[in-house]
């Protein structure tokens, strides 16, 4: 009976896939002390070229919503790991990552990327001149593509954050 119970628990844990871990609303509200402003950024021309370099493909939308309060911004993007999109939230303070969260994971394997031991590696990371993350990110066996997806989205979010900040600086905000 004990063995049966153990097998049931084990099987249940294996079948718990395709989960939403945190809602987008909760991610936004947890990322800001004050109520942020929702903005949007057009992803055309150079930005799509950068997306191609960082993600390996064009970002699959022409416009992206993000949330901002002062120098802090929050970005929610979907990126395919192996077959299904992973919903990833990235909060950026200034030019450094403050928080990375996996909001929804739909692949059958590799869901370990949601755990803090992985996502905390991104905290404090900025973009190096060669567009790599300044922080080294350790991979997870069996979740290589998911790790890559989170890393690439973090880089792209940093790029977009810098891009919007520079637009603000020269007064050419396009939203």
């Amino acid at each position: 009976m004990k063995h049966l119970f153990f097998c049931f628990i084990l099987l249940s844990s294996q079948l718990c896939v395709g989960a939403e871990y945190i809602s987008e609303q909760d991610f936004i509200s947890q990322s800001f002390t004050n109520s942020p402003t929702m903005k949007s950024i057009w992803l055309k021309g150079d930005r799509q070229e950068v997306a191609k370099e960082m993600l390996g493909h064009r970002y699959p939308a022409l416009r992206l919503r993000y949330w901002m309060d002062g120098t802090k911004s929050a970005w929610i993007m979907n990126e395919i790991g192996k077959e299904k999109p992973i919903t990833i939230g990235v909060t950026i303070e200034g030019d450094k990552i403050e928080r990375v969260s996996i909001l929804a994971y739909r692949e059958s394997r590799g869901g370990e990327i949601r755990h803090p031991f992985f996502t905390e590696q991104f905290v404090g990371a900025g973009l190096k001149p060669n567009a790599d993350l300044a922080n080294p990110v350790d991979g997870i066996a069996g979740a290589t593509l998911s790790v890559r997806a989170v890393t690439n989205i973090s880089r792209f979010a940093l790029y977009l954050s810098e891009s919007t900040a520079s637009e603000f600086a020269i007064g050419q905000v396009s939203h």
Binding site: E24, Q25, P60, A61, R65, I76
Partner: peptide, 8 residues
């Protein structure tokens, strides 16, 4: 795809 609106 232009945009994707969620509850957020």
């Amino acid at each position: 795809v232009v945009d994707w609106l969620t509850e957020a």
